[in-house]
């Protein structure tokens, strides 16, 4: 009996040597697919990127671009063009001379050796109807930071002045009745400098408007992680066929060179309203969810299926059109406060 017990005690140690083992996959899961990505708009000719998906255990750090494909462009089921590549490009880009028009029903069909052919259809969205865009409550906080170096003797170091701009922007949209529409808002600060150069700064924004509530937010239970807000994309589900006003505000702590008079000539806020296709809207929402859901390696989150409208393949073919308004920002309209903070 004693010998038996000694053997029993040794067995767990022996078996621990093989607690992890590789799993083999069926070949059909390993095979890669064509990935067709394109965004069509009425201001540019059709362009497409074609690449191959890779098996998730593939160790290459880049995706294979497909440069030997045949891509056909159909309009109302009639071939109108065969897309071409630029000779020096190896990035899987293909172009057509055709510039899509709103309402065009287009189809892209791609075939490449070693892959199943893929195709995707899209109707190009119309321009959105932006009735008005107003900028209100412009505030600027000119903050000087003073860093404490020592108490005895008391010494400080004064940092440069940082300008923080806040404002409320109200956009009024006239939604088209009986058509499901999807929108995107993008804001820029355009600064024209005294030396003749100009700079375009992308502005994030926040909003409590209900139309953005479907854009889910993930933070972890301990308050970690970043707010992943897709604030700029939304559907007309709640205001279909009506005029609707949305107020967004620039976040308080977004660093911007606003009115440093020594170098700035003029500044503009550029408000863009995009109409986007339903396919791109779903692709965008689900892709953002996929990125956000990677908390702790995705261990505690449900996996996300990213939307695709590419038959037999992966990716999205979407469309968009843009209306843009430029609003000059006048210093006299702004409420400016100067703050010095000591750290």
């Amino acid at each position: 009996m004693k010998k038996l017990f000694n053997i029993l005690l040794l067995l767990p140690v022996l078996t621990l040597f093989q607690c992890e083992n590789p799993i083999d996959f069926d070949l059909d899961l390993v095979e890669s697919k064509l990935v067709l990505q394109s965004l069509l708009t009425s201001t540019e000719n059709v362009s497409v990127q074609l690449s191959a998906s890779r098996f998730f255990l593939d160790e290459s750090d880049k995706f294979r671009k497909i440069n030997n494909a045949t891509i056909l462009l159909f309009k109302d089921d009639v071939i109108i063009d065969t897309l071409h590549r630029s000779a020096e490009d190896e990035g899987g880009y293909y172009f057509s001379d055709y510039i899509p028009q709103a309402g065009d029903h287009l189809k892209l069909q791609a075939a490449a050796p070693g892959f199943e052919s893929v195709e995707s259809e899209i109707t190009v969205v119309a321009l959105p109807n932006l009735v008005s865009a107003e900028v209100l409550d412009i505030k600027c906080r000119a903050q000087t930071v003073e860093w404490l170096i020592s108490h005895q003797p008391y010494r400080t170091y004064i940092d440069t002045v940082i300008y923080y701009l806040t404002a409320n922007i109200t956009l009024t949209i006239a939604d088209t009745p009986e058509i499901d529409e999807y929108y995107n808002i993008i804001l820029y600060l355009k600064t024209n400098y005294i030396d003749g150069t100009s700079e375009l700064t992308r502005f994030p924004f926040e909003s409590k408007n209900i139309v953005f509530s479907s854009n889910e937010v993930n933070v972890d239970m301990f308050g970690g992680g970043e707010m992943a807000k897709n604030y700029n994309i939304f559907s007309d589900e709640l205001f279909a066929g009506r005029n609707y006003s949305i107020t967004v505000n620039l976040p308080e702590n977004f660093y911007s060179y606003f009115w440093p008079e020594s170098i700035t000539k003029s500044q503009y806020l550029i408000v863009e309203l995009h109409s986007v296709s339903k396919d791109y809207y779903f692709y965008r929402l689900t892709a953002a969810k996929a990125y956000n859901g990677m908390d702790m390696g995705g261990m505690f989150g449900e996996p996300v299926q990213v939307y695709s409208n590419v038959k037999n393949g992966i990716g999205v073919v979407g469309s968009y059109n843009v209306v843009r308004k430029e609003i000059k920002l006048n210093k006299s309209d702004a409420d400016i406060t100067e703050i010095t903070e000591i750290y």
């Binding site: 990505q37 990127q49 690449s51 593939d58 990125y291």
Partner: peptide, 16 residues
């Protein structure tokens, strides 16, 4: 998710 693919739209840079 047995396949991975290229996303050229940069939407992962959500954070301002």
């Amino acid at each position: 998710a047995v396949q991975e693919y290229s996303n050229p739209f940069n939407i992962e840079d959500y954070n301002y």
